[in-house]
């Protein structure tokens, strides 16, 4: 089986293992306090969707390790698909940029096609009003680093701000995973169909184990609305993830959820082994042709469940790896 190599690097204490454990091992933010420094490299194998196999290498960030990775003959930087490099917004010193540049230099030789994802982390420590500016200034600073230019020229660099204390973490990692998934057009098309059938306000698809967002419908909105939808998506992801984790305490696994809220109905269900679907339907749409009693509500539920059931076959056929 072939794996895509993902490197997770950055100075010691910048928050790499915290992120990895929150996204892939169900840690909560508070749990990360008990993490010790990573010794050398911790490798995690992750399977997302049909055949998207990742090998995530969490590289301990103490200087001696970092210098080791760039030594001639080191295989760590070989064949890398993606480098995720973490900067602690508070604890980054000029010396750290030197190491970063050495890594980039080596990577340029060993994996020239590698994509780079920069995470400016621990942004919760920055005053909320200044966050955007501090982030942009930081990114501008990093970009002027000459060794990044090679990757910038190939359009292979992305940057996001993160904190384990808010949804920005999920947003950034959704972007990261999104950049690894091949064509999602077919998925998008089916979502649109589905949305029409159930008069959905929006639909979201999450990866089952990480609950990272894979796709949403609608998928292109005006900038403001899109930002709103993104933020809602990330928060939903966090809320459900938390719930999934809590039901494990009674040795159970999450299956589905139906919520009749104030003016919306919300349905969450497994779509395939790797995908959970969430459908949000505005109330008025369905209330038009039914009366208000609770028993009828259940038949609405049945209708939506039926639609999801029929959709399952279609979505199972969408083999992501087949489009490579």
């Amino acid at each position: 089986m072939s794996y895509k190599n993902i490197l997770l690097m950055g100075k010691s204490g910048s928050g790499k293992s915290s992120m990895r454990n929150m996204i892939f091992s169900n840690y909560s933010a508070i749990d990360t306090r008990r993490l010790g420094a990573t010794i050398d490299v911790e490798r995690t194998q992750i399977r997302l969707l049909n055949n998207l196999n990742l090998s995530l290498m969490d590289c301990g960030g103490q200087d001696s390790y970092m210098l080791n990775y760039i030594k001639a003959g080191s295989t760590k930087l070989n064949n890398a698909e993606l480098l995720i490099y973490v900067f602690d917004i508070e604890g980054t010193q000029p010396k750290d940029f030197e190491i970063f540049n050495l890594i980039l230099n080596t990577l340029k030789n060993l994996s020239p096609r590698c994509k780079i994802f920069l995470l400016v982390h621990k942004m919760d420590l920055v005053n909320e009003e200044e966050r955007e500016k501090v982030f942009l200034d930081f990114y501008v600073g990093v970009k002027s680093s000459s060794n990044l230019k090679f990757f910038l020229d190939q359009n292979n660099v992305q940057c996001a701000q993160t904190s384990i204390w808010d949804e920005s973490l999920y947003k950034a990692w959704s972007q990261i995973v999104g950049s690894l998934i091949p064509e999602t057009q077919a998925l998008q098309k089916h979502l649109k169909n589905l949305g029409n059938i159930v008069s959905a306000e929006f639909i979201m698809i999450f990866e089952t184990s990480t609950f990272l967002k894979i796709a949403t419908h609608p998928n292109s909105l005006p900038k403001d609305e899109q930002a709103d939808l993104d933020s809602i998506t990330q928060r939903v992801s966090g809320i459900i993830k938390n719930y999934k984790k809590s039901v494990e305490k009674i040795s159970a696994r999450f299956r589905s959820l139906t919520l009749y809220a104030n003016s919306k109905s919300i349905y969450l269900d497994n779509l395939t082994d790797n995908m959970v679907i969430m459908i949000v339907i505005p109330d008025s749409k369905i209330e038009k042709d039914i009366n208000k009693s609770t028993t009828v509500k259940i038949s609405e539920e049945k209708y939506v469940q039926d639609v999801i059931k029929r959709a399952r076959k279609t979505f199972e056929k969408l083999d992501f790896s087949g489009k490579k």
Binding site: R253, R255, S256, L257, L259, Y260, A261, S263
Partner: peptide, 9 residues
Amino acid sequence: KRLRCVSKL
């Protein structure tokens, strides 16, 4: 409207 939630595990 009142909240109503059903979750299957």
